[in-house]
Each structure stands twice: as structure tokens, then as C-alpha cells.
Write a protein that binds this DNA or RNA. Structure first.
Lengths: 207, 207
DNA sequence: CGATTCTTTGAAAACAGTCAATCTGTGTGG
DNA sequence: CCACACAGATTGACTGTTTTCAAAGAATCG
């Protein structure tokens, strides 16, 4: 029983890694446990690690000019997570990363990541595929943020990420969707009362 | 004088390619010219090509459920452009790509792209760096779309992409920013008349 | 020119945010 | 076990931004 097991399973499910490669890769990851609300990194700190999530749930977020948190992404088991400057060589983190709940991670630094890419073509190919899917998902999120109403974004989120919706507080879901907690609360109320109408918060029953 | 020259210059500026490598790469690209409004691809068509832009200006966009266009990105000379399903193996295009003005492109298909990555480690590394920067830019756009007002998004766009702002119609800029053409027109009017009142980027004496 | 297409403008309505108060559940210490 | 504190969620009233619809005014291109 090793903390590397979840990542080994992840890798083996995606490409035919040899035992030698797996052993090589294992040596480059550093196990780390985070308690709820504990930080992996804060904005402004030097960029150190990115992580593979073995168990738990984390989030990355930035703080905007008004002091509000904007959640960039949530990470569940079998996801990769890091500051978006990690790969491109930025000196300091642009975002905060902390644990939503107790989480087990496997950390790696830039030098290790470089070694993985260079010494394991299989890993390089697999990582490229994962990264490309991730970029396509970002495009879809941009489209949603620019063209959909708050309610439709919420419904799509429930449909596409029910596993995340189940375990993060409503306040964080609102932040991820770019809406205020109050608005999300009203959307939910509207939907639970009036069956399943999609579009608007019409005619409030003024008692 | 070859249509490959702009791409050769792009590559040589970023990594030490050998003459052999360059010649190998050159053979994988197909020159193509697009007139204004001519399509490279339409949503629903099979995924065929992605492109390197030598000259001109293109855009990729999707059509949302209300029939409105949402522009995903503009591409200027020295940019790569393709459907976001190009790299991940989707069968059909999710977006439209057409030329904003007369443009010269170098097309490549998936098989060629695979060859570039596999046979030229230098190209693979360079492409990875470009792609990672591109993904980080997407994150910043998500943050902006979720947390900034229409006016601030417009101002940031002017600051970060003055070259694009100069050559695309206002209507398209609005679509890229996720606001209606009318709202963009009002923002511009408001700014030209009343000096420079902005909600966040106040008093920036740009001489 | 004439025909588009793009931009501007006005008025009304939809949509979402803010502020403030209340309600709910959870966990803590007495 | 209870009382309390605290954070999260809900609700109401209000404000402000953005969209929509409609029409008129530029600009562009064949």
C-alpha cells in the first residue's frame, strides 16, 4: 500500500507504462496531506509545486480587485492541479490553492515535471492528451460565461459536474459560476418550487 | 520566397531547428489563402485542418442556443488556430472559423501534427510551451468574464490586444467580450465624452 | 449611386448585485 | 444537555447594469 497507488492506477489506465517507467515516475512525486482549508499555495508566493489529487477536493481561486474570490477550478481525485504559471515559468503564483476537504496529494516541482516529459515519452504523450482536453474544457467554460444566464450556467454545472456540486458549499459553487451567493440561492428556490421552468425568475408571489 | 517563410522565421526565433528539421516540417504544411468572410471550417463538418497564420486575421466562433455568435478567439500573424477538438480527436468541428480579412495560412492535419511531435522533439517542446501559454491566457479570460464589468473587459482588451482592436469590427469585439453591440457602443460613447471615468482603472494618465 | 452592413440612439424590461436582516444547522464550552 | 457563537443559506427591498426591440444614422463595397 503506497501513496503512489492512485496515480499508478491512473497512469496504467491511460497508457502502457513499463514497470521501470512507473518506478522512475514514482520517485519524482512527493506525498502530501492537506486538512480542510489548509493552503497548498498562496498568490504572490514563489511557484513550487503542482499536484495530482489522490483523494479529497481542492480549489484554486484568485482574489479580484474588489476583494472577492473567483474560483478557477475544483480538483477531485484523478485530476491535476497547479497554478497556471507553473508550466510556463512564471516566478510567483497568481492564485490561491486550498483544500475544500481532507485531501491526499502527490506533489511535483518543475524540474521533476521536465524529467517526466523528457525521460518518458509515454508520459509526455499522456500528459499532452490530458492537457488538451483540459484546454477544450476551458473554451466551453468561456463560452458559457460569456453567453449564458446565471441559471443556465448553474444547470449545466449540475449536469456536467454533479460530483463537484455534491461536495462543495453553495457559496463556492456561486463563485465558480461567477454569480453572487444570493442569486444562486434564489435560482435554487425558484427551481425547487416551480417544477422545472428553465428561463427566468418571473413574478415573485408577493404575499 | 516561399509561403513557408513566416513559419520558418517563427520557428527559428523560438528554438534551434536544424535545416533538416525545417525541411521536414515544411513538407507537412499546406499553403492556403482565404478571402474576407471565407470559411476555413463550419461547425458540424469533419475536423480536417488546423492552421498557422502567416498574414491576415481570422476568428473562431460558436453559435449559441439563441442563434447569437460567440467569438472564441481572433488569430493574427504568428498564431495557431484550430477547432478545440482538433487535438483531442473529436470527429466534428464545434466551431466556425472564417477570415476577418484576406489571410494566408499554412494548414496541417492531425496525422501531420502527430509526425511533427514525434519526429521533432524541438518542435514538440516549442509547441508545448506555446500551448501552455495559451491555456494560461484562457484562465485569465475566464476570470475576466466571470468577475469584471463589460466596461472593464473592454478596457483590458484595448490594453492587452490593441492590434486586434484596431482591425476587427466593433460588432465582433462585442461578441468576443460577451456583450451586445449596443452596450459596447454606449461604453465607447461614455468614455469619449466624459474624459476617462472608469469604475476600476481610474485615472491612468496615458499621455 | 443602391444595397448591405455596421453603428448609434432611445425607451422599456430583464437580469443580477448589494445591503441588511433573518433563519438554519453545526459544533463548542460550560 | 443546553446555551451560545459562528458560518452558511435564505429572504426582502432596492439599485445598477446589460439586454432587447425598434428606428435612424454612418460607412463600405460592388
Amino acid at each position: 500500500m503506497s501513496s503512489f497507488d492512485p496515480l499508478r492506477a491512473y497512469l496504467e489506465a491511460r497508457a502502457p507504462f513499463t514497470a521501470t517507467e512507473l518506478h522512475f515516475l514514482e520517485g519524482l512525486f512527493i506525498p502530501k496531506t492537506l486538512r480542510p482549508r489548509e493552503f497548498l499555495q498562496r498568490a504572490g508566493e514563489p511557484v513550487r509545486y503542482a499536484a495530482f489529487v489522490s483523494t479529497g477536493c481542492l480549489r484554486s481561486y484568485v482574489v479580484d480587485s474588489n476583494g472577492g474570490e473567483v474560483i478557477l477550478e475544483f480538483a477531485l481525485p484523478n485530476w491535476w492541479l497547479g497554478d497556471h504559471t507553473f508550466l510556463t515559468g512564471g516566478a510567483t503564483c497568481e492564485c490561491f490553492i486550498d483544500a475544500v476537504r481532507h485531501s491526499d496529494l502527490l506533489l511535483f516541482d518543475r524540474a521533476s515535471h521536465q524529467k517526466m516529459i523528457e525521460h518518458s515519452p509515454v508520459f509526455a504523450a499522456m500528459y499532452r492528451v490530458a492537457f488538451q482536453k483540459y484546454a477544450a474544457a476551458k473554451d466551453r467554460r468561456i463560452i458559457g460565461a460569456l453567453s449564458m444566464t446565471a441559471e443556465d450556467r448553474y444547470l449545466e454545472f449540475l449536469k456536467k459536474s454533479p460530483d463537484i456540486a455534491r461536495q462543495v458549499p453553495q457559496r463556492m459553487m456561486a463563485s465558480y459560476l461567477g454569480i453572487s451567493p444570493e442569486t444562486l440561492s434564489r435560482i435554487r428556490k425558484h427551481r425547487s418550487s416551480s417544477g422545472a421552468g428553465s428561463s427566468v425568475l418571473k413574478a415573485k408571489p408577493r404575499s
